[in-house]
């Protein structure tokens, strides 16, 4: 993984000091706006909102850039698909394929939406440690009746933080396993299916073994998946209230922009 990709940058900006819940709600509002945005004005307005938030955080351009850049292949793919496969009046023809004006417009809109989404997400992750994001999500989910699904918001939070630790760990053991099998003469090119089998089966065993150990360690530390407290004390302060109100108001204005334009 690249060092900067959606990683936390310690600091003491306004965005850093806000309650993670405010920031998560903010991101949700922003995503609604982003997915509804059609016109150039809306896109510009979202850009302005982002710039304001960016200035309020001590995030660097580099951090935002390095959260978007690794996604370039997907972004280019999305753009190309829309460019070539949207019906409309042709403006150019490449390799016998038509590029339409509508395609260009739609491609740019959809791609820009994704870029915006990544940019807003990088604001959240660069100003909030992942542990606090987890706690924030847990608190926001707590009032919802997750019990019908057979889990609690605490289980969800524990799963989130464990997977953040476990994914790199499993990746490490997968590499060890691959080396072990390769050194015993596994030929991935000539017998791809056999290779897949001799990697996945032991890998599943390793994963279960780890899960079993982990469950034992959690249980011996009294984890019951019921109400638990956190080392992080979340405080929804006056500043949060103010920020969420302003942000909500801004969002509402942008949300109703298409309607306002009609007048």
């Amino acid at each position: 993984m690249t060092g900067m990709f959606f990683s936390y940058i310690p600091g003491n900006s306004l965005l850093h000091r806000l309650d993670p819940r405010s920031k998560i709600i903010g991101i949700m509002l922003a995503s609604i706006l982003i997915f509804r945005a059609m016109s150039v004005y809306e896109m510009l307005a979202i850009g302005v909102v982002f710039s304001i938030l960016f200035l309020l955080s001590s995030t660097t351009v580099k951090a935002v850039y390095s959260s978007v850049y690794p996604m370039r292949i997907i972004l280019i793919f999305i753009f190309t698909i829309h460019l070539f496969f949207t019906e409309g009046s042709s403006i150019l023809s490449v390799f016998g394929m038509n590029i339409s004006y509508e395609g260009l417009l739609k491609g740019s809109t959809v791609t820009l939406r994704f870029i915006y989404l990544l940019m807003f997400a990088s604001l959240l992750t660069s100003s909030t440690p992942s542990s606090l994001i987890t706690v924030g999500i847990e608190r926001l989910l707590r009032p919802f009746p997750l019990k019908v699904l057979g889990i609690s918001s605490f289980d969800l939070a524990a799963m989130m933080s464990m997977s953040l630790y476990f994914v790199p760990l499993l990746h490490g053991s997968f590499n060890d396993l691959k080396d072990a099998q390769l050194s015993r003469g596994l030929d991935m090119k000539r017998h791809p299916f056999k290779a897949m089998y001799s990697l996945t089966v032991p890998m599943i065993r390793v994963a279960f073994r780890m899960a079993d150990d982990l469950a034992m360690s959690m249980e011996s530390r009294c984890y019951q998946g019921v109400h638990r407290t956190s080392i992080f004390d979340l405080r929804f302060g006056r500043m949060d209230f103010l920020c969420i109100s302003i942000f909500g108001l801004l969002s509402a204005i942008i949300f109703f922009m298409p309607v306002l334009q009609d007048f």
């Binding site: 542990s131 630790y165 150990d213 959690m218 530390r221 009294c222 984890y223 407290t229 080392i231 992080f232």
Partner: peptide, 23 residues
């Protein structure tokens, strides 16, 4: 395979959080 927290301090806190202790 016995860590639950994303950082050392969170892992040490895990048991106490289960006991419902204040932050």
């Amino acid at each position: 395979s016995q860590f639950v927290g994303m950082t050392v301090e969170e892992d040490v806190a895990f048991g106490l959080e289960n006991l419902g202790m204040a932050s």
